[in-house]
Amino acid sequence: MKVKVIKDDCISCGLCVNEVPAVFDWDDDDKAVAITDDVPDKLESEAQDAMDGCPTDAIIEA
């Protein structure tokens, strides 16, 4: 599974960064960014929850 954050849609709510810090972090503009090319198998469920919970649907499967 690969994920991507659409920077223009991110409102910096922090849900994904707080829920899955091994996959998401902040960039220099305080927007979320996926920090790994492939989500580790053991974190796919959490990454999916972050995608589903994103209030602006800024996280997509890449």
Rank of each mutant, 00 (worst) to 15 (best):
K42D: 15
F24D: 02
I35C: 03
I35Q: 07
C54P: 07
A32N: 05
A34E: 01
K2E: 14
T56A: 06
E61L: 08
A50N: 11
P55A: 00
V20C: 10
P40I: 07
A62F: 12
M1E: 12
D37M: 05
L43S: 07
P40W: 09
K7M: 02
E19S: 15
M1D: 10
I59S: 05
D41S: 13
D27A: 04
K2F: 02
T36E: 13
C16M: 04
C10A: 09
Q48N: 14
V17Q: 07
V23N: 08
D29H: 11
D29T: 03
C10P: 02
D30M: 09
N18S: 14
V33R: 12
D9S: 00
I6D: 09
D28Q: 04
D27Y: 07
P21N: 01
A58G: 08
Q48Y: 11
A22F: 09
V5A: 02
K7S: 12
D30V: 04
V39Y: 06
P40V: 09
V39A: 00
A50P: 12
W26M: 10
T56W: 06
E46M: 12
D28H: 01
L15P: 12
E44D: 10
I11P: 02
K42C: 11
K7D: 07
L43F: 12
D25P: 04
V20Y: 06
M1P: 08
I59N: 01
K7P: 02
M1R: 14
V5N: 06
I35R: 08
I60K: 03
A50W: 09
D52C: 00
C13E: 07
P40N: 05
I11K: 11
K31L: 11
D52L: 04
D52H: 03
T56N: 10
K31R: 14
K7R: 10
A47I: 08
L43I: 09
K31G: 06
V3K: 10
D30Y: 13
A50L: 06
C13D: 09
I6G: 05
V33D: 01
V3R: 07
V20E: 03
C16S: 02
K7C: 00
A32Y: 02
Q48A: 14
M1Y: 11
K42F: 15
I60P: 00
D38P: 01
A22S: 15
D37K: 13
Q48S: 10
K42A: 13
W26G: 06
D37I: 05
T36R: 14
F24C: 02
D41W: 08
A58P: 01
Q48T: 15
V17W: 05
V3M: 13
A47P: 08
I59Q: 00
V39C: 06
C54M: 08
P55Q: 04
D30E: 11
C16L: 02
K4T: 07
D9W: 00
